[in-house]
């Protein structure tokens, strides 16, 4: 039975890695589409969002099957319960990448983005998502903890962009709808950072049994 269970856990692991890769691709493409005003790439992000949803459903079913069949304990229990939580955050990352792509298709923001350092924020967010998935793949506690700390940087970048936009509006900005679009994108990026942090927190839990605030199960 243990052999079969090991195979099922490996299957779960591979599926999570694949879903993580889909999220990494989605956010990277959405940002590239934003920076280059690439509508075709933005459309790909929108089209591929359903693949992430599908992966979430499949992993969810597998986790429920494992809980039922194997009644897992110890590290097995932590890995499966962490997986169940992580896929919700991954799915939300997919949703938010799609939302960014929708705005990219509708508006041309590439010039303004340069002045607002949105690119820096986008690159930091991509790194955070990639690192959170890598931390899971490599069971890397240090990297997961670095992701949790790294989220503060993105939060501060969001605040800066917000203040710059307020300044722009105050100075009689010509294009109010553009300002709204940019604040929306910045907010999506900030939320993606939060989801990457959540993923990293569940990676820490699956390794140590401690989730947030130092509380052990």
């Amino acid at each position: 039975m243990r052999k079969q269970f090991e195979a099922q856990l490996e299957d779960l692991n591979m599926r999570l890695i694949k879903m993580g890769a889909l999220c990494e691709t989605a956010i990277a493409r959405a940002i590239r589409a934003l920076l280059n005003k690439d509508d075709e790439l933005a459309q790909q992000v929108i089209d591929n969002e359903k693949d992430i949803n599908h992966a979430e459903k499949e992993i969810e079913n597998l986790c429920l099957k494992l809980l039922l069949q194997q009644q897992p304990v110890a590290s097995d229990l932590r890995v499966i319960s962490a997986a169940l939580k992580m896929i919700t955050d991954m799915e939300r990352i997919g949703d938010q990448a799609e939302e960014i792509a929708v705005i990219v298709k509708r508006a041309n923001l590439s010039d303004t983005i340069q002045t607002l350092h949105l690119k820096d924020m986008a690159m930091a967010t991509i790194k955070l998502v990639n690192d959170s998935i890598d931390a899971y793949v490599r069971r890397d506690l240090e990297l997961a903890q670095a992701v949790i700390k790294g989220d503060d940087v993105i939060d501060n970048q969001f605040k800066d962009i917000k203040e710059n936009l307020i300044e722009m509006i105050r100075n009689q900005c010509q294009n109010a709808s553009m300002a709204i679009d940019i604040i929306m994108i910045a907010k999506y990026l900030e939320r993606i950072g939060d989801h990457a942090t959540n993923i990293a927190e569940w990676v820490v839990f699956s390794i140590t049994g401690i989730h947030k605030e130092g509380k052990e199960i």
């Binding site: 039975m1 243990r2 269970f5 304990v73 110890a74 590290s75 229990l77 140590t208």
Partner: peptide, 20 residues
């Protein structure tokens, strides 16, 4: 019990309760 079955300290406990 909750601690032993969620986060055992000893690898031998972990190996036994998980069937390894």
């Amino acid at each position: 019990t909750e601690k032993i079955f969620a986060v055992p300290n000893d690898k031998r406990t972990e190996d036994y309760i998980t069937g390894r």
